[in-house]
Design a protein around this nucleic acid. Sequence first.
DNA 1: CTGAAAGCGCTTACAG
DNA 2: CTGAAAGCGCTTACAG
Lengths: 340, 340
Amino acid sequence: MKNRITLKDLAKDLNLSPSTISRALGNHPAISDATKKRVQKKADTLGFTPNSIASSFRMKKTRSLGIIVPRIDIHFHSLVISGIEDYAYKNNYNVTIFQSKNSLKREKEITKILQTRMVDGVIGCLSIETKSCDHFKKFDKLGVPLVFYDRVPTDFDANKIVINDFESAYTATKHLIKSGCKRIGHIAGNQTTTIFNARLEGYKAALKKYKLPIDEALIMHTNNLSYDEGVNCAKKYLALPELPDGIFCANDYTAVSVIQVFRKGGINIPQQVAIVGFSNYPISRIIEPNLTTINDRAFQMGEASTKLLIRKIEDDNDIIDSEIITLKTELIIRESSKLN
Amino acid sequence: MKNRITLKDLAKDLNLSPSTISRALGNHPAISDATKKRVQKKADTLGFTPNSIASSFRMKKTRSLGIIVPRIDIHFHSLVISGIEDYAYKNNYNVTIFQSKNSLKREKEITKILQTRMVDGVIGCLSIETKSCDHFKKFDKLGVPLVFYDRVPTDFDANKIVINDFESAYTATKHLIKSGCKRIGHIAGNQTTTIFNARLEGYKAALKKYKLPIDEALIMHTNNLSYDEGVNCAKKYLALPELPDGIFCANDYTAVSVIQVFRKGGINIPQQVAIVGFSNYPISRIIEPNLTTINDRAFQMGEASTKLLIRKIEDDNDIIDSEIITLKTELIIRESSKLN
DNA sequence: CTGAAAGCGCTTACAG
DNA sequence: CTGAAAGCGCTTACAG
């Protein structure tokens, strides 16, 4: 570490006090323009860079947000983080990221780290293993606001940014019904996860509403909605005495695998089976036929989380205890379900 | 902000000095086990959390790494960041992320922010717009180590983690030649970017080595190697009097678009045209036929960058000025090029 | 084994 | 318009 220039050094050089230097660089109204210019010029020539840690320490504000995501390399999360960084950057906050790797143990460790006053607020998406959220309760005691997105706690009141999974699944299923499908299947995610349960329920609700039977044989269950699980589900569909004529898949990966397996089996999509996915992953525009899917607003989720969080951080006399914001999704109709 | 418990509070409560509390919690050998236990217990019951900003300030170490990437939501970068976070986490560093959004202006702003002693070291991948790296030179003066990956500066000596793009392209092209291809095309990226130029040169070198002609008509140039540009290139190939029998694409997106356009045109892959991509994106395992590609070691690039950076941060009497580490890539042979 | 003291580099209420 | 002084919460060299 080299010797770094401080306010004191500038002060000595200019025969001013450190207070004046600080005010001049902070563009304080009480300082004369002449002084401001002198100070700025000296700061530039000496290459002064302020010590933001000293400032954070003094101000008890770090202008940092802590983010806990299961994994960064999952496209959904990388989009959310992109939205977070973008909104934070525009508001002069920076973003410190941690991956829980879907381990409850690691998630707990991370909350401990974040509870050292490192950050002014926290945005989290729970790990798959997380059932109870006790390890997040300390933030409230410390006065550190907390916002969850996507996988949110159910066991305590918290700020949450979500989409309406039930409604989205209902819309997707209704779209298949309106396109003329009568035997509609569903590839479901892990039912202990709220959002995947809601997608299943939305699917069922649409069937009920339009007086179509709910046939458990057409509902396939998976653990991770992985591509490979999708392949298995597709094979099971092919083994049925009668194929479904439409399938709503709880994510795009399984939808893509179904399309591929079915086409290999000589089945026309969408003519014989129409397919709808969920998430609007990049692959949905590449797979042939292009996949009808739900835009889950990942980037906007990041923006909205950050906007809410910063408001909570900066509004001292905020009397709202917790807030749940639901974003509108969007059905994107593409070739995989165009029947008429 | 609520009133927070400090070392002083604990000290008063236990009739000890703050120094002792600090040492006890830091597991200093000079403190008796009995005292350590008393202090730890009290800290737990009062819910003491240390103020890491105060500690950073005092120690002149933040244990934070600053990352500048063009975008977080590009799969390559999200993988690198994942590798960075993983290695950093295991070594008790945290990771603060900024996106340049490929804007030189924003990249400069970010370097300014990072030069406020916020971080102990910086990992960067240059924006597309960046030609000169003067804005990074200040880090050296501040004693803040800097490591670049992937898109690295050419105009000054710096620590760099790269793959051998020339060699990888050579290997990919050689694979096509060994598979029997005689008319091999290339879809090239922006030639002002070093890595894409190296890929083109590696391709040419392989052709030369094996005494195949370099036919400029078979070399397509793109700006961003986007999917849509790939579609255009594919159409241009189709318009040629004679098709190539193999194409090495500088990334997977263009390779995928070529496969799709060619198949729509009734061309068999790999029998008529063998295709090789670059990067091993998830889609390479989904597209049919599965795409032969180069594993570009994104995650490992993140790990290696962080390992090098932390070494530079912690090794005070390091006399190495700058270091360039080249990672081995791997040719992954899949259906799109299996000719024999 | 424990304590008193100094100081990291800022910011700001108070005084002039 | 400018300055002197206090203090944010830690850590550690020094002393005992």
